[in-house]
Design a binder for these strands. Structure first.
Lengths: 190, 190, 190, 190
DNA sequence: AATGAATGAGTCTTCATTCAT
DNA sequence: CATGAATGAAGACTCATTCAT
């Protein structure tokens, strides 16, 4: 990658970005099929025709990009949580607390941005594959932190899966109850 | 007339029932907004006008009924799992295995019938309330089994929530991987 | 007509009557096509199936009956207005004032019950014929009063038509302005 | 480019215009609720999606536009009638004759395009306001001609209202009788 | 690179009517 | 006589997408 590319890559392409952010937010809230392109375009303040300029394959393309973007954000949260942590379990605790805050900042009802966007979409095999890929990225990130704290390869894997399951399940219960404390209580179950 | 017939004869409205079953199945697979009424009616082999005869408020009404029906089914699975179990943890294990089978019998991709139906629907407050109510029913059922096995009130509550979270999160990971063994492995995490 | 029939005819058949009254009122307000049978039945507090019991030909039948009923009411207003009048023009004045009151009692927006019911209905020839017939009845009634006050046959006819036109046109202007005084001012134009 | 072209070129949107014309014609004949959008679209030879492109608020929007368009046409007829007239009453006579012709050219059954479109529509306050506005425009146009012929302000107003009432009432009687001569006889009543 | 007009298959819902009881 | 369950055609409207510019 040349430095030109880097500069270019840093250059904000606001329309495309706004499209992705809006998509991520709306899909997370109402699901893939629950969001019309009109709503989306209006929310992103993007002109009608521009969607197909940036995403030639339309809505599915945008959904993939939105899920990826949301996943990147989550990976960053994971990284930050474990960054200064003295142990895996304290990193995990920080992560759950950060997610609790996130839960409160959104509508206390939004779903996991990946599953809401990709699980109920057109029963496209690509959607499933991509969701699996993104989840795998999350699991790998967490596993790496466990390894870093001295866990065995097998144990690290288990720990990452366990945390994944608790967070996904906890989020679901938090939604049903509109109560972010469910998230804060998760570390006790590890 | 046998007592079985009597029970069955109470309300044999097959059209309404077919509607509910089809709705539960399709919503679980593709989400509330992912299912068109045309698909639904065709799947249930019900004539177009029937829906609004049985569910005057249309799709939302039907979704509520479908979620309730699905929830009832799940409660039955819970009851069966704990029925002959010698301990809470063995009942929980049986439940996870039964759910793994269920996962394989469906598309290995379907979501939780309650959240898929009610969480991404029209951001109706009633939907949220009903989802909460159904989940509370599940939690209460499991808590009662824990109490039956001698757990304290507080402990029983915790156990039911823990199991709920594991099952919901595990199901999510199972979907992503199309692998029901995730469900079978859950009891180890209790 | 036997006395038995008379007794029988006086016996209130409430469902059918309520149906007719509701139809007259709703059609007058929203027009033939603007009123659904569901609204109608609900307004008349009549059970679903009873419409076709009393009016085998359904909505058109009911519309005809409603227009006739409304017309009968108007004829009665005409008769009352001219009953004690010392001259044709004073009778006409009373009539206009009575209609102004009627206008205020309804929504200040309702149309002529006959035209609202029959003019925009299905382009049924019968509807047109019936409307013509009802209007002819009104004109004849007014003409008779003119004759009674000594007008020539030709003059009486003209007077009735003139009054008809003023009332119909005045009503229209009154609707546009939501102002019943338009009606009260009509006699000055005779 | 001639000035004519310029005027025409300002907004040559033929689809939108066809939609408006068809709407005006069909609403006039069968009333707002009597016209389905399918009929309308077919009559205008416009594709289904076009309507909501040109009239984002759908049928009510289109009805407003159609009533305005029809009203503009009627104002033109008024202007033409009074244009070369030597007196108000001769202008009025010409107008009545022109309307009689119009009556014969349409179905001898059509209603006033404004009231048929706006009076029985959804009991929207906007509809009422717009109808009032359009009628006020007609009355003002006629009043101006009366003023031009030397009538006092008050007299001109009265004359315009009187003519309005006769035309509206006369049209109604003409419809009932399918006889345009009612219109031709109106000037005698001024 | 970017856009808004245009499109027809699709959405959910209501309609007037029939029918068995 | 009276009724409410049942029905499919039609209702208004939105959808994701294409296209010419």
């Amino acid at each position: 990658m040349s430095s030109y590319d880097m500069i270019d890559a840093e250059k904000p392409r606001p329309t495309k970005d706004r499209l992705i952010r809006s998509a991520a937010e709306l899909f997370r809230t109402r699901g893939y099929h629950g969001v019309g392109l009109n709503d989306l375009l209006a929310h992103a303040k993007a002109p009608k025709g521009s969607l197909y300029h940036h995403f030639p394959n339309g809505k599915p393309d945008l959904a993939m990009a939105a899920a990826t973007w949301a996943s990147d954000g989550l990976l960053r949260v994971v990284a930050e949580s474990f960054a200064g942590a003295p142990s895996f379990s304290e990193g995990a605790t920080t992560l759950c607390h950060k997610l609790a805050k996130l839960f409160d900042m959104t509508n206390q009802w939004d779903g996991c941005p990946i599953s809401a966007t990709l699980f109920v979409g057109p029963e496209n095999a690509e959607f499933r594959k991509h969701a699996d890929h993104l989840y795998a990225g999350w699991l790998a990130e967490v596993r790496d932190h466990a390894l870093r704290f001295g866990a065995s390869e097998e144990d690290a894997l288990k720990k990452s899966e366990h945390l994944f399951i608790l967070i996904q399940g906890g989020w679901q219960l938090a939604r049903a109850r509109s109560d972010s404390n469910v998230m804060r209580d998760l570390p006790n179950k590890l």
